[in-house]
């Protein structure tokens, strides 16, 4: 259900932050930027999927 989405996103956010710091410390700014972008894409895809799911439920329930 959606409940564990929240903790997945929080986990991805924290991991990407740590990865970012490690990559920046080791001097690879570009990879750090790419990791943040990749993490963001994954999270946004998950959010878009669950938004679509909510809109479908509302359409069925309220007969829109």
């Amino acid at each position: 259900m959606d409940v564990d989405f929240i903790f997945k996103i929080a986990a991805i956010g924290i991991i990407v932050t740590v990865l970012n710091l490690v990559l920046i410390r080791s001097g690879r700014e570009e990879q750090a930027m790419l990791t943040t972008l990749a993490g963001l894409v994954v999270v946004l895809l998950m959010v878009v999927n669950s938004v679509a799911e909510l809109f479908d439920t509302v359409k069925d329930l309220f007969g829109l």
Binding site: D2, L44, L54
Partner: peptide, 27 residues
């Protein structure tokens, strides 16, 4: 709040996702 300190876009995604979860439960 935790995520906002490091990455605000994740905090936004988290807020939207938790709102979704609550709305689905209420539905």
């Amino acid at each position: 709040l935790i995520l906002k300190g490091y990455k605000t876009e994740y905090a936004f995604a988290l807020a939207v996702c938790s709102a979704l979860a609550v709305l689905t439960l209420i539905l």
